[in-house]
């Protein structure tokens, strides 16, 4: 499937993957992050059960301390 991740086209072998699987496949290990799928903010507790599907628009941002 193809998705847009942070405005870039990404392709995954599976037809659908969970948020957790996407993070592992992309080696995104830093924990303080925000993920939005098609405009919806995804709670951390739902990373395992939330599916990313063909055509989804996914945004991820890292929250760094300091302000």
């Amino acid at each position: 499937m193809k998705i847009l991740l942070n405005d870039r086209a990404e392709e995954f072998a599976a037809d659908s993957i969970s948020v957790t699987e996407m993070l592992i496949l992309k080696k995104f290990s830093y924990k303080m992050r925000i993920i939005k799928i098609n405009g919806a903010l995804i709670s951390k507790e739902l990373y395992d059960s939330t599916a990313i599907n063909e055509g989804d628009i996914v945004h991820m941002l890292y929250l760094m301390s300091g302000g």
Partner: peptide
Amino acid sequence: YRRIDDSLYICGDESTEAV
């Protein structure tokens, strides 16, 4: 600067932490 959507915008390098 990144616009995620109409309600969320990010400014910063998204990589350095204050330590």
